[in-house]
Amino acid sequence: MPPVSPDGEPRILIPPTLSPAAFAARDSAGRIAQFAGETMGTRWSLSAVSAPVDTARTVQAALDRVVAQMSQWEPASDISRFNRSAPGTWQSLPPEFARVLKAALQVAESSGGAFDPALGAAVDLWGFGPAPAPDDAPAEAATTAAVAGGIDFDGPGLRARRTASARLDLSAIAKGFGADLAAEHLLASGLRHFLLEVGGELRGHGLKPEGQPWWVEIERPPQARFAPLRMALHEQAVATSGDYRRWLDAGGERHAHTLDPRTGRPVANAVHSVTVLHESCMMADAWATALTVLGATEGIALADAEGLAVYMIAGEEELLSAALRTMLD
């Protein structure tokens, strides 16, 4: 598809979840309320129809729970304690932590190692975690050693252990899980129609009172020259990974913040952004990172094999997976 002005008419994506029955279930008498707060070094926002009075507290409590378990910026978090544990020693995990680690390891296996939750040592070497950024790019020997370890996981036992010097880093999946957990708590409270955003990751449920879906535009790099893609986010989540968000300038070179777990070094494959539409924001978050690492050809091929709805911008091209193309109105 040739480049066009970003001011062109948006292309519309309609997911199969937006069925005629969805419109019959709308809350036509409800009113939309707005809520917002802070979490994970960013902000969250919520638009909700007929929201209970404790809605903001429900969202914040869920997100605070994720931070307490999975933020390596918090010394007392479960993940920080895990990373300080002796290699080879089994550590008990909270149920949410175990759920995220299980999903991360599933994506790691399905992507052939393009995603790896045991990347914490390499992340710290490049200054993309709590450690300060280095003045120069780490040596290849250091990054190779940083990805040498791994994680043993016992799902039924809710425990894990690290091998060698491996350290967990769940930053490529935890924010998406935070959106999922908050959404699950909102649904459990009886809320049915809402749009939740956590630092750019979104989950949408139900409809607006007038019967319109929650319309969101797929995030694109600032330099992108393609017509916008606008989607009706209904019973779905969306997450984007982009090389324009964070980077390290070292040794006269700019290094993307996404690391290839197979080398411990930043990806350099001309992929500028990957957006994944999925029923789970956690899975969308993880897959967006994995497909970024794999690159255009291999990434889209795997997306098609997995049935993932994916939008990718690589170099001067945009690529849509088969599942996403079927949603084009």
Rank of each mutant, 00 (worst) to 15 (best):
V4M: 00
P6I: 02
L18H: 05
A21C: 10
R31N: 15
Q34G: 15
E38P: 11
R43A: 14
S50T: 12
D54C: 11
V59E: 12
A68W: 00
E74L: 11
P75L: 11
I79K: 08
G88C: 03
S92Q: 07
L93P: 14
E96D: 15
A104K: 05
V107K: 02
P117K: 02
P117I: 00
G120F: 07
A121I: 05
A121T: 12
V123N: 13
G127H: 01
F128C: 03
F128D: 06
E140K: 05
V147Q: 04
G150W: 01
D152K: 01
P156D: 01
F177W: 13
A182D: 11
A183I: 02
L191V: 09
F194A: 09
P209H: 09
G211M: 00
E217Y: 00
R220P: 13
P221L: 04
P222I: 07
A224F: 01
A232P: 09
A239Q: 04
D243R: 04
R245Q: 09
W247M: 10
D249I: 04
A250Y: 01
D260F: 02
A270D: 15
V276P: 13
H278Y: 04
H278C: 10
S280T: 13
S280E: 05
E306K: 03
L308M: 11
Y311F: 07
G315D: 03
G315A: 02
L320W: 06
M327N: 04
